[in-house]
Amino acid sequence: MTQSRPAPTSTDDPAKAAAFEARIAAGESIEPKDWMPEKYRRQLVRMMSQHAHSEVVGMLPEGNWITRAPSLRRKISLIAKVQDEAGHGLYIYCGTETLGVDRAELIQQLLDGRAKYSSIFNYPTLSWADIGVIGWFVDGAAIVNQTILAKASYGPYARAMVRVCKEENFHKRQGYEIVATLANGTPAQQAMVQDAVNRWWWPSLMMFGPSDTDSPNTAELIRWKVKRKTNDELRQRFVNLTVPQATAVKLTLPDPDMTYNAETENWECGGIDWEEFHQVVRGNGPCNRERLEARNKAHDEGAWVREAASAYAAKQRARQASAAA
């Protein structure tokens, strides 16, 4: 059947492009050395690096409460969760590197403010209850997204997502357990968790991105099976999952306009404030500057450490070489 194909080039040859579309339509996995349209490569680098940046920046709002976690068990669980987020960033950066870009370059884009990351991490964590609600809402939303991505057409991304999904389930459970404990606790704890829900609900809905009508990339990404569902579809799935979970612990979601549509079986939300979303994405959210400052500080203060490790490795290689000579 197949004749041998010439070596891949980066110009979009229409025959190659058609063959690529056919592979995608047939549900095949695209691997790093396969021919791919330049735009596919660029979209993937953008999507994957944004995802990796989000994991790394996401360590900060939760990391903010490690030193104040109110029990040893919670302290240990939270450190393990933040550690997982570092690991997820790592898996996805490595996946992105298969597309021919160095991790150092990707990180520099984030530090320079040239790269985007999930808007949700630009909000502050103001109480211990925020940690529970983040696990419940934010990881819950991420799971909805990532389960779908585990079937993405690009092999390294899909494989990273399978690993991430396995680990993510503990995050949501941990969060919900904290929420349930607080909701069943003292009046002060109940007030704490309801307040956290009030602050995190709408930003969590915005995590799924703009409405389908305002999302220019979606159609192409869906055709290329990099995105499998639209923003609105995923958002609706998340809402339907979460409403009964809130009811179960007697917490109210801060949406007085929410109604249940018996025909579609959907919980329909009131209006999302897209102006807030755009401001946050543009860099004017409550914590954007602080997040980037923290990442830049860690990177700058770590430079001499990274250099030392490289220098030592080079010295060791030179010693081994001269010992062998």
Partner: peptide, 22 residues
């Protein structure tokens, strides 16, 4: 090979990076 020379040369070749990929 003189260890000090090794040290000097390798230090000059230690720019900041994310280290090699494994």
């Amino acid at each position: 090979m003189n260890q000090d020379v090794v040290a000097e040369q390798t230090e000059a070749l230690a720019p900041d990076s994310q280290w090699p990929l494994w």
